[in-house]
Computed example of a mutant assay.
Amino acid sequence: MIDDSLTFLGSMNMLSHQRVGGRREVMAVMRSRHFAAHILRHERADEFDRPPTCPACRQQRRAALRGSGSKRRLHWLCPPPCRHPISPFPDIDGGRNQRRAPRRPRP
């Protein structure tokens, strides 16, 4: 994300470039306020911008993935040695790393 309307999508990792024959990665530029807003919502940027404070230790919590398989999702954790319970990120429409509604069978 560059600003509220300019988004780079892809990767230009220097380590993935071939010595001969060109590059193996691509970067695209998207100029759209709607697309930028969609990506920020999907990546949950507003929540990462304001991490909560733990009610027990009063320190800022950090985000981490917890669980496995379809139950793997983002949670807020306290830094050690605090053992306050972890709290899951709230589900939002189109958000990343959260429970998904079951797929409808195809007709």
Rank of each mutant, 00 (worst) to 15 (best):
L74W: 15
Q59R: 14
R83W: 02
Q98Y: 08
C57Q: 04
V29I: 10
R50E: 12
E47S: 00
D46K: 15
R73S: 02
R72P: 03
R100G: 04
Q18G: 04
S11G: 08
M14I: 04
L15Q: 12
A45N: 04
H34W: 09
L15H: 12
I39G: 00
D93Q: 11
H17I: 09
D46V: 02
R44M: 06
A37R: 15
W76S: 04
I92T: 15
D49S: 15
L77I: 10
R23P: 01
R103K: 10
P51T: 01
M30D: 09
A56P: 01
F35K: 05
L6S: 12
I2C: 06
T53N: 01
I92R: 13
G95H: 05
D4A: 07
A28V: 14
P80F: 03
L65N: 05
I92M: 01
N13E: 12
T7S: 01
R44Y: 09
P55A: 02
D93L: 05
A36S: 14
T53W: 00
R41D: 14
P90R: 14
T7P: 00
M12N: 15
E25Q: 12
D46F: 09
G69W: 08
P107M: 04
P88Y: 09
A36Y: 01
M14A: 13
M30I: 08
D91V: 08
N97C: 06
F8W: 14
R83F: 02
H42G: 04
D91K: 04
P102D: 13
A63E: 11
M14K: 15
G69R: 14
I39Q: 02
L15M: 10
D91M: 03
R41H: 15
A45V: 07
D46R: 15
G95F: 05
M12R: 12
D93R: 13
D46M: 10
H17G: 00
V26H: 13
D93T: 07
C82W: 03
R106Y: 07
R96N: 10
F48E: 02
G95L: 04
L40Y: 08
P105H: 12
P90M: 06
A101Y: 06
M30L: 11
R72L: 03
M14Q: 11
I92S: 09
P88F: 08
H75P: 01
R66F: 05
S11Y: 05
R96D: 13
R96M: 08
S16Y: 11
S16D: 14
H17Q: 10
R24E: 03
R50A: 06
C54I: 00
S68W: 10
L77S: 13
K71T: 09
F89V: 00
H75Y: 15
S70R: 12
S70N: 08
G94W: 13
F8D: 06
S87L: 06
L74P: 00
S11A: 14
R99I: 00
R33P: 09
R66V: 01
S16V: 08
T53G: 01
P85E: 11
S68F: 11
E47G: 00
A101W: 09
V20R: 11
A28T: 13
R66C: 03
R58S: 01
I2G: 11
H84M: 02
R33H: 09
R23Y: 03
C82E: 10
R44G: 07
P51K: 03
R100S: 09
R50Q: 13
A101F: 07
V20E: 11
R99K: 08
